[in-house]
Write a protein that binds this DNA or RNA. Structure first.
Length: 341
DNA sequence: GTTAGGG
DNA sequence: CCCTAAC
Protein backbone atom coordinates (compact mmCIF):
# COMPACT_ATOMS: atom_id res chain seq x y z
CA UNK A 1 0.00 0.00 0.00
CA UNK A 2 1.17 3.46 -0.63
CA UNK A 3 -0.01 4.60 2.67
CA UNK A 4 2.89 4.24 5.00
CA UNK A 5 3.55 6.83 7.56
CA UNK A 6 5.74 4.74 9.72
CA UNK A 7 9.45 4.99 9.58
CA UNK A 8 9.44 8.68 8.99
CA UNK A 9 8.11 9.51 12.34
CA UNK A 10 9.35 12.49 14.14
CA UNK A 11 10.76 10.56 16.98
CA UNK A 12 14.02 12.35 16.76
CA UNK A 13 14.31 12.25 20.53
CA UNK A 14 16.84 14.98 20.73
CA UNK A 15 18.89 13.99 23.69
CA UNK A 16 21.46 16.59 22.95
CA UNK A 17 20.06 19.57 24.65
CA UNK A 18 18.88 17.52 27.53
CA UNK A 19 20.90 17.35 30.65
CA UNK A 20 20.82 13.64 30.72
CA UNK A 21 22.15 13.55 34.20
CA UNK A 22 20.55 10.43 35.39
CA UNK A 23 20.86 7.05 33.85
CA UNK A 24 17.16 6.93 33.74
CA UNK A 25 15.41 3.77 34.58
CA UNK A 26 16.41 0.25 33.93
CA UNK A 27 14.89 -1.33 30.89
CA UNK A 28 18.14 -2.39 29.32
CA UNK A 29 19.35 1.16 29.23
CA UNK A 30 16.67 2.13 26.79
CA UNK A 31 14.43 4.52 28.53
CA UNK A 32 10.93 4.66 27.40
CA UNK A 33 11.64 5.96 23.99
CA UNK A 34 9.17 4.45 21.73
CA UNK A 35 6.97 7.09 20.35
CA UNK A 36 5.83 5.83 17.01
CA UNK A 37 2.93 8.10 16.69
CA UNK A 38 1.30 10.43 19.05
CA UNK A 39 -0.54 13.55 18.20
CA UNK A 40 1.30 13.62 14.97
CA UNK A 41 -1.06 11.06 13.57
CA UNK A 42 -3.87 13.31 14.46
CA UNK A 43 -2.48 16.18 12.54
CA UNK A 44 -1.70 13.99 9.60
CA UNK A 45 -5.15 12.61 9.54
CA UNK A 46 -6.64 16.01 9.81
CA UNK A 47 -4.42 17.22 7.07
CA UNK A 48 -5.48 14.46 4.82
CA UNK A 49 -9.09 15.06 5.50
CA UNK A 50 -8.55 18.69 4.84
CA UNK A 51 -7.01 18.00 1.51
CA UNK A 52 -9.71 15.66 0.50
CA UNK A 53 -12.64 17.58 1.70
CA UNK A 54 -10.99 20.88 1.11
CA UNK A 55 -12.80 22.23 4.05
CA UNK A 56 -11.54 23.09 7.43
CA UNK A 57 -13.63 21.95 10.25
CA UNK A 58 -12.37 24.79 12.32
CA UNK A 59 -12.06 24.63 16.01
CA UNK A 60 -14.55 22.96 18.19
CA UNK A 61 -13.46 24.89 21.18
CA UNK A 62 -16.31 26.85 22.45
CA UNK A 63 -15.35 29.91 24.31
CA UNK A 64 -18.30 29.59 26.55
CA UNK A 65 -17.06 26.68 28.50
CA UNK A 66 -16.25 26.83 32.10
CA UNK A 67 -12.75 27.11 33.28
CA UNK A 68 -12.52 23.53 34.30
CA UNK A 69 -14.32 21.97 31.43
CA UNK A 70 -11.92 20.29 29.14
CA UNK A 71 -12.64 21.20 25.60
CA UNK A 72 -9.57 20.00 23.92
CA UNK A 73 -9.26 18.55 20.51
CA UNK A 74 -12.56 16.96 20.09
CA UNK A 75 -12.61 17.11 16.38
CA UNK A 76 -14.81 14.21 15.78
CA UNK A 77 -17.39 16.57 14.58
CA UNK A 78 -17.26 15.83 10.97
CA UNK A 79 -19.05 18.34 8.83
CA UNK A 80 -21.10 16.35 6.42
CA UNK A 81 -19.01 14.99 3.67
CA UNK A 82 -16.13 13.08 4.97
CA UNK A 83 -14.17 10.94 2.56
CA UNK A 84 -13.78 8.43 5.31
CA UNK A 85 -10.09 8.68 5.73
CA UNK A 86 -8.74 5.35 6.60
CA UNK A 87 -5.26 4.08 6.87
CA UNK A 88 -3.66 0.78 7.39
CA UNK A 89 -1.90 0.44 10.61
CA UNK A 90 1.51 -0.78 9.64
CA UNK A 91 2.48 -1.11 13.23
CA UNK A 92 -0.26 -3.52 13.96
CA UNK A 93 0.61 -5.46 10.89
CA UNK A 94 -2.94 -6.58 10.61
CA UNK A 95 -3.77 -3.86 8.21
CA UNK A 96 -6.67 -2.74 10.23
CA UNK A 97 -8.47 0.23 8.90
CA UNK A 98 -9.16 2.72 11.55
CA UNK A 99 -10.91 5.96 10.94
CA UNK A 100 -9.08 8.82 12.52
CA UNK A 101 -12.25 9.85 14.19
CA UNK A 102 -11.97 7.14 16.74
CA UNK A 103 -9.71 9.18 18.89
CA UNK A 104 -11.65 9.57 22.02
CA UNK A 105 -10.02 11.44 24.78
CA UNK A 106 -9.59 9.92 28.11
CA UNK A 107 -10.88 12.64 30.28
CA UNK A 108 -8.67 13.14 33.23
CA UNK A 109 -10.98 13.73 36.15
CA UNK A 110 -9.02 16.31 37.94
CA UNK A 111 -12.15 17.63 39.52
CA UNK A 112 -10.81 17.05 42.95
CA UNK A 113 -12.82 19.55 44.79
CA UNK A 114 -12.21 18.23 48.21
CA UNK A 115 -13.67 20.79 50.44
CA UNK A 116 -12.54 18.98 53.49
CA UNK A 117 -9.68 20.14 55.56
CA UNK A 118 -8.57 22.81 53.27
CA UNK A 119 -6.70 24.48 56.03
CA UNK A 120 -3.63 22.37 56.22
CA UNK A 121 -2.73 22.75 52.64
CA UNK A 122 0.76 22.20 51.36
CA UNK A 123 1.81 25.64 52.29
CA UNK A 124 0.08 25.31 55.57
CA UNK A 125 1.26 28.82 56.12
CA UNK A 126 -2.04 30.02 55.03
CA UNK A 127 -3.57 32.11 57.63
CA UNK A 128 -7.25 32.43 57.92
CA UNK A 129 -8.34 32.71 54.38
CA UNK A 130 -10.91 35.27 53.75
CA UNK A 131 -14.29 34.07 52.98
CA UNK A 132 -15.18 34.03 49.36
CA UNK A 133 -18.42 35.83 49.91
CA UNK A 134 -21.09 35.75 47.34
CA UNK A 135 -20.65 32.14 46.58
CA UNK A 136 -23.61 31.98 44.30
CA UNK A 137 -22.54 34.69 42.00
CA UNK A 138 -20.35 32.40 40.08
CA UNK A 139 -20.93 31.97 36.42
CA UNK A 140 -23.75 29.61 35.64
CA UNK A 141 -21.61 28.03 33.00
CA UNK A 142 -19.06 26.94 35.48
CA UNK A 143 -21.49 24.84 37.34
CA UNK A 144 -18.92 22.29 38.30
CA UNK A 145 -16.89 24.79 40.14
CA UNK A 146 -16.03 24.32 43.69
CA UNK A 147 -18.09 26.95 45.17
CA UNK A 148 -18.72 24.64 48.02
CA UNK A 149 -15.68 25.86 49.81
CA UNK A 150 -17.04 25.92 53.18
CA UNK A 151 -14.42 28.20 54.15
CA UNK A 152 -14.55 27.84 57.38
CA UNK A 153 -14.89 30.29 59.96
CA UNK A 154 -12.77 28.15 62.01
CA UNK A 155 -10.63 29.78 64.64
CA UNK A 156 -7.42 28.90 62.96
CA UNK A 157 -5.19 31.53 64.30
CA UNK A 158 -2.12 30.90 66.33
CA UNK A 159 -1.04 27.38 65.54
CA UNK A 160 -0.58 28.24 61.95
CA UNK A 161 2.50 30.15 62.85
CA UNK A 162 4.40 27.07 63.74
CA UNK A 163 7.14 26.78 61.18
CA UNK A 164 7.38 23.06 61.19
CA UNK A 165 6.52 20.54 58.64
CA UNK A 166 3.00 19.42 58.60
CA UNK A 167 1.69 16.04 59.35
CA UNK A 168 4.45 13.48 59.28
CA UNK A 169 2.15 10.85 58.01
CA UNK A 170 3.16 7.34 58.79
CA UNK A 171 6.83 8.07 58.93
CA UNK A 172 7.91 10.72 61.28
CA UNK A 173 11.50 9.72 61.34
CA UNK A 174 12.99 12.66 59.61
CA UNK A 175 14.66 14.26 62.52
CA UNK A 176 18.09 15.31 61.45
CA UNK A 177 16.98 15.73 57.92
CA UNK A 178 14.52 18.38 58.65
CA UNK A 179 17.02 19.92 60.97
CA UNK A 180 19.65 19.75 58.31
CA UNK A 181 17.76 21.93 55.97
CA UNK A 182 16.07 24.26 58.26
CA UNK A 183 14.47 26.01 55.37
CA UNK A 184 11.29 25.24 57.15
CA UNK A 185 11.72 28.52 58.85
CA UNK A 186 11.15 30.19 55.57
CA UNK A 187 7.96 28.48 54.77
CA UNK A 188 6.62 29.85 57.96
CA UNK A 189 6.06 33.20 56.45
CA UNK A 190 6.97 32.82 52.87
CA UNK A 191 3.90 30.92 51.93
CA UNK A 192 1.76 33.09 53.99
CA UNK A 193 -0.37 33.63 51.01
CA UNK A 194 -0.59 29.96 50.19
CA UNK A 195 -3.82 28.22 49.67
CA UNK A 196 -4.46 29.70 46.33
CA UNK A 197 -7.91 29.51 45.10
CA UNK A 198 -8.43 26.18 43.57
CA UNK A 199 -9.06 27.48 40.16
CA UNK A 200 -7.11 30.21 38.60
CA UNK A 201 -7.31 29.13 35.10
CA UNK A 202 -6.02 31.20 32.30
CA UNK A 203 -6.72 30.12 28.81
CA UNK A 204 -4.12 31.26 26.43
CA UNK A 205 -5.01 30.80 22.81
CA UNK A 206 -2.15 29.71 20.64
CA UNK A 207 -1.52 30.54 17.05
CA UNK A 208 -2.49 27.05 16.04
CA UNK A 209 -5.91 27.65 17.35
CA UNK A 210 -5.19 25.48 20.31
CA UNK A 211 -6.35 26.69 23.64
CA UNK A 212 -4.04 25.78 26.43
CA UNK A 213 -5.06 26.32 29.95
CA UNK A 214 -2.18 27.46 31.99
CA UNK A 215 -2.74 27.20 35.63
CA UNK A 216 0.10 29.17 36.84
CA UNK A 217 0.46 27.92 40.32
CA UNK A 218 3.89 28.94 41.52
CA UNK A 219 5.58 26.42 43.67
CA UNK A 220 6.09 27.62 47.16
CA UNK A 221 9.26 27.08 49.04
CA UNK A 222 7.62 24.69 51.40
CA UNK A 223 6.39 22.64 48.52
CA UNK A 224 9.86 22.45 47.07
CA UNK A 225 11.22 21.47 50.44
CA UNK A 226 8.63 18.82 50.77
CA UNK A 227 9.42 17.51 47.36
CA UNK A 228 13.10 17.31 48.17
CA UNK A 229 12.28 15.63 51.41
CA UNK A 230 10.16 13.09 49.68
CA UNK A 231 12.79 12.38 47.10
CA UNK A 232 15.41 11.99 49.76
CA UNK A 233 13.23 9.64 51.67
CA UNK A 234 11.82 7.55 48.89
CA UNK A 235 14.11 8.38 46.05
CA UNK A 236 13.50 9.93 42.69
CA UNK A 237 10.54 8.36 41.09
CA UNK A 238 7.94 6.90 43.35
CA UNK A 239 6.14 10.16 42.92
CA UNK A 240 2.94 8.55 43.91
CA UNK A 241 4.30 7.66 47.31
CA UNK A 242 5.73 11.08 47.77
CA UNK A 243 2.49 12.61 46.86
CA UNK A 244 0.57 10.41 49.21
CA UNK A 245 2.85 11.16 52.09
CA UNK A 246 4.13 14.64 51.70
CA UNK A 247 1.36 16.06 49.61
CA UNK A 248 -1.26 13.84 51.07
CA UNK A 249 -4.25 15.80 52.11
CA UNK A 250 -2.96 18.87 50.49
CA UNK A 251 -4.33 20.12 47.36
CA UNK A 252 -2.99 19.76 43.91
CA UNK A 253 0.47 18.72 42.87
CA UNK A 254 -0.07 15.38 41.33
CA UNK A 255 2.68 12.90 40.74
CA UNK A 256 3.24 14.37 37.33
CA UNK A 257 3.59 17.79 38.81
CA UNK A 258 6.12 16.50 41.26
CA UNK A 259 8.09 14.95 38.50
CA UNK A 260 8.01 18.13 36.47
CA UNK A 261 9.06 20.21 39.38
CA UNK A 262 11.84 17.83 40.15
CA UNK A 263 13.06 18.11 36.61
CA UNK A 264 13.02 21.86 36.78
CA UNK A 265 14.76 21.70 40.09
CA UNK A 266 17.39 19.50 38.59
CA UNK A 267 17.94 21.87 35.77
CA UNK A 268 18.17 24.78 38.12
CA UNK A 269 20.60 23.04 40.39
CA UNK A 270 22.84 21.99 37.54
CA UNK A 271 22.70 25.37 35.97
CA UNK A 272 23.83 26.94 39.14
CA UNK A 273 26.67 24.55 39.69
CA UNK A 274 29.28 25.81 37.26
CA UNK A 275 29.30 29.21 38.91
CA UNK A 276 28.33 32.15 36.83
CA UNK A 277 31.61 32.84 35.17
CA UNK A 278 30.03 34.93 32.50
CA UNK A 279 29.31 38.53 33.12
CA UNK A 280 25.73 39.57 33.21
CA UNK A 281 24.45 36.22 32.11
CA UNK A 282 22.57 35.76 35.28
CA UNK A 283 18.99 35.83 34.23
CA UNK A 284 17.70 34.54 37.47
CA UNK A 285 14.44 35.44 39.06
CA UNK A 286 12.57 34.57 35.96
CA UNK A 287 9.12 34.49 37.37
CA UNK A 288 9.26 32.36 40.39
CA UNK A 289 11.09 32.64 43.61
CA UNK A 290 14.76 31.78 43.36
CA UNK A 291 15.37 28.46 44.91
CA UNK A 292 17.56 28.86 47.94
CA UNK A 293 21.07 27.55 47.75
CA UNK A 294 20.68 24.74 50.27
CA UNK A 295 17.76 23.41 48.39
CA UNK A 296 19.62 23.37 45.13
CA UNK A 297 22.53 21.65 46.78
CA UNK A 298 20.27 19.05 48.21
CA UNK A 299 18.65 18.55 44.85
CA UNK A 300 21.95 17.97 43.17
CA UNK A 301 23.13 15.61 45.84
CA UNK A 302 19.95 13.64 45.62
CA UNK A 303 20.16 13.59 41.87
CA UNK A 304 23.60 12.11 41.96
CA UNK A 305 22.59 9.69 44.60
CA UNK A 306 19.63 8.51 42.61
CA UNK A 307 21.75 8.30 39.52
CA UNK A 308 24.18 5.90 41.02
CA UNK A 309 21.66 3.80 42.81
CA UNK A 310 21.30 0.34 41.40
CA UNK A 311 18.27 -0.06 39.20
CA UNK A 312 17.32 -3.28 40.84
CA UNK A 313 17.19 -1.53 44.14
CA UNK A 314 14.76 0.90 42.67
CA UNK A 315 12.77 -1.77 40.98
CA UNK A 316 12.38 -3.72 44.13
CA UNK A 317 11.21 -0.58 45.70
CA UNK A 318 11.28 -0.94 49.40
CA UNK A 319 9.85 -4.37 49.56
CA UNK A 320 10.43 -6.66 52.45
CA UNK A 321 13.27 -8.53 50.85
CA UNK A 322 15.91 -5.92 51.07
CA UNK A 323 19.06 -7.86 50.56
CA UNK A 324 21.74 -6.20 52.54
CA UNK A 325 24.86 -6.54 50.56
CA UNK A 326 27.74 -7.11 52.90
CA UNK A 327 30.07 -5.32 50.56
CA UNK A 328 27.76 -2.52 49.67
CA UNK A 329 29.98 -0.07 47.94
CA UNK A 330 27.29 2.35 47.10
CA UNK A 331 27.94 4.31 50.19
CA UNK A 332 28.32 7.93 49.46
CA UNK A 333 29.27 10.79 51.66
CA UNK A 334 26.04 12.36 50.63
CA UNK A 335 24.07 9.38 51.60
CA UNK A 336 21.77 11.13 53.91
CA UNK A 337 18.86 8.82 53.62
CA UNK A 338 18.53 8.25 57.27
CA UNK A 339 15.88 5.68 57.87
CA UNK A 340 15.51 4.82 54.27
CA UNK A 341 12.61 2.67 55.18
C1' DG B 1 -3.00 3.49 37.87
C1' DT B 2 1.76 5.25 37.60
C1' DT B 3 6.00 6.88 35.42
C1' DA B 4 8.84 9.24 31.94
C1' DG B 5 9.39 12.37 28.29
C1' DG B 6 8.00 16.02 25.16
C1' DG B 7 5.42 20.15 23.98
C1' DC C 1 1.31 23.07 33.05
C1' DC C 2 -0.72 19.73 29.69
C1' DC C 3 -0.58 15.56 26.91
C1' DT C 4 0.75 11.08 25.67
C1' DA C 5 3.21 6.85 25.24
C1' DA C 6 4.78 3.01 27.89
C1' DC C 7 4.82 0.18 31.99
Amino acid sequence: MEDHFSGSSKNVQSATSKLHIASEDDHQGAKRVRKPTKRYIEEVSELESRENSGRLVSSAKSSGHGPRTRVRPVHNIQPVRRPLVTRQDSLGGSGVQIPYVSRIRRGRPRENFMALMKFQSCGMGMAARLVKKAHDEHDPESDNEIENQELKARPVTGWVQQPLIEEPGENEQYSEQSADLNDDADEGHVDSYADDSDDNILTVPTAKGGMRRKHHRPWTLSEVVKLVEGVSRYGAGRWSEIKRISFATCSHRTAVDLKDKWRNLLRASFAQLPADKGVGNSKKQSSSIPIPAPILLRVRELAEMQSQVSPDLKSVKYNSNNNNNSGSRNNNVNDIRSGFL
